[in-house]
Design a protein around this nucleic acid. Structure first.
Length: 287
DNA sequence: CCCACGACCTGTGGGC
DNA sequence: TGCCCACAGGTCGTGG
């Protein structure tokens, strides 16, 4: 589900409950998500102190005082909720089922600070790992990742180098986490629209000037989305059950056959399929 | 290497 | 109302 802005929103929600807290109770209620849980997963987490709550690309990273880092990828539908121990079952909230009765509540944790943290994932495309912190960067999940789109290494020069000679369309190239890490289907469509670039254009054909516009558009849309608490399509919420609202500011995503929102553009937005995934764009102002 | 596609899994919304 | 299909924010493996 979540792209970088949603993962960052989750990170910010988890931080107050988990950073510096000790995990007093951990239960994995099934043997696997997308992949099997690590060996003795609950035992290795129980008693550990969480030193920080960080994000790399779409991964949540929680380095522990045991020397390992607890890594979570939310996949398409993964989410966390936080309650205070002893809370009534959060009546009236977006997610109001008691976690233990929810068939998709896969990991239950408690902290010495009195928080109950639950991980849900209906489709189970998410996954968790425990990786030696000193070897994190060399781990296959991280070794090949491209730069953070909000970091200093994500530049027009970087894209120029990585797109050179590529016949593949720019849209699927931007979804490749080895080129830039954290974008997904929504924000790629949004950034290409803002930059006025045709998603079908061959990567290697995009000029440096346009790549610079693209880099700026990616940064802008991600920053605005983080500011808005991410986007809520079907079921995304932050850890407190609050909805993101950036979906109201989509310019093209999920808006096929609507008037292009760009000032003075007379185009109508279209939905096409690239690499099996929907792309939304305006054929008039994206060339 | 490059690329498109199916697979993984469940839920939901729209059309009939 | 009810059923069925298409599609969903992500990646990974396969095969051409």
């Amino acid at each position: 589900m979540p792209e970088l802005p949603e993962v960052e929103t989750v990170r910010r929600g988890l931080q107050p409950a988990l950073e510096s807290a000790r995990l007093t109770s951990v239960e994995a209620r099934r043997p696997d998500l997308r992949f099997p849980f690590p060996e003795r997963f609950a035992e290795r987490l129980t008693g550990a102190r969480v030193e920080a709550v960080e994000r790399r690309a779409k991964y949540l990273l929680m380095p522990l005082d045991t020397g390992e880092t607890w890594v979570t990828h939310l996949g398409m539908t993964g989410r966390f909720s936080i309650e205070r121990r002893g809370d009534a079952e959060a009546p009236g909230r977006f997610h109001n089922a008691a976690p233990a009765e929810d068939r998709h509540a896969h990991v239950l944790l408690e902290t010495d600070g009195g928080a109950r943290v639950t991980f849900f994932d209906a489709r189970r495309f998410g996954y968790m790992g425990l990786i030696a912190t000193a070897k994190l960067q060399a781990h296959p999940w991280f070794a090949g990742l491209g730069p953070e789109p909000l970091g200093p290494e994500f530049t027009a020069a970087h894209l120029l180098r990585r797109f050179a000679g590529r016949a593949r369309a720019v849209k699927p190239l931007l979804l490749d986490q080895r080129i830039v890490a954290g974008l997904g289907n929504i924000y790629v469509s949004e950034a290409l629209h803002r930059a006025g670039i045709d998603p079908r254009a061959a990567g290697g054909s995009v000029t440096p000037v346009r790549l610079k516009r693209l880099v700026e558009a990616v940064r802008a849309v991600l920053e605005e989305a983080i500011q808005a608490g991410g986007s809520t399509l079907r079921d995304f919420s932050n850890a407190k059950g609050e909805l993101g609202y950036f979906q109201h500011r989509f310019r093209v995503y999920d808006r096929a056959n609507a008037a292009c929102p760009k000032p003075r553009c007379r185009g109508v937005t279209r939905r096409i399929v690239q690499g099996g995934r929907s792309t939304f764009y305006c054929p008039v102002c994206q060339r």
